[in-house]
């Protein structure tokens, strides 16, 4: 009854089906995504502390550096490259408007986190927004412009919440 060092699995990333893919079990999801050319997800610490590697796994934001590629069998994954629905298109416009990014390295994680915030369909004040993004490190912006952007995105979606 031995475990395996390589495993063959199926999963979906950004609506693209991947079948019978063999992955080394020790490789984390962030590295795996980057190895297949989805380099929009960035690695910052491999400890789960900086948030740069955040992706959406089965509808939930997770740290891709703390998921083993062996654990994604049957899963549906979304990375920054796949955030092209109407909601996120608008969010990106709002981010750009507020200059809610400078170097862009934290942006993919920030956007996934923002998507989860908006999916909660709650009106949040600035302090609450700051709490929601408290796990995403940004060294460039000082966070204010990101809070501005998320505040506007929530406002923008408020009609959707009231439906």
């Amino acid at each position: 009854m031995l475990g395996s060092k390589k495993i063959t699995i199926n999963f979906i990333i950004n609506d693209e089906k991947f079948n019978d893919i063999t992955v080394p079990v020790r490789q984390h999801l962030g590295d795996f995504l980057r190895s297949i050319g989805l380099t929009g997800t960035h690695i910052g610490c491999e400890q789960g502390a900086c948030g740069a590697c955040t992706v959406e796994l089965d509808g939930k934001a997770v740290r891709s550096c703390l998921i083993l590629s062996s654990q994604i069998n049957g899963s549906v994954i979304k990375t920054v490259e796949g955030l092209d629905d109407t909601l996120m298109k608008k969010v990106k416009e709002i981010f750009l408007k507020h200059n809610a990014l400078q170097c862009g390295f934290c942006s993919s994680g920030m956007l996934i986190t923002t998507k989860e915030i908006l999916n909660k369909k709650k009106k949040l004040n600035r302090e609450q927004i700051r709490t929601e993004i408290s796990g995403n490190y940004c060294r460039c912006t000082g966070y204010q412009s990101i809070v501005d952007a998320i505040e506007e995105a929530i406002e923008d979606n408020i009609q959707g919440y009231l439906k």
């Binding site: 031995l2 475990g3 395996s4 060092k5 495993i7 020790r26 984390h28 062996s70």
Partner: peptide, 11 residues
């Protein structure tokens, strides 16, 4: 850092 090698078993 990258993890050392190990086996994986889904119970």
């Amino acid at each position: 850092m990258k993890s050392p090698d190990f086996c994986y078993y889904e119970a």
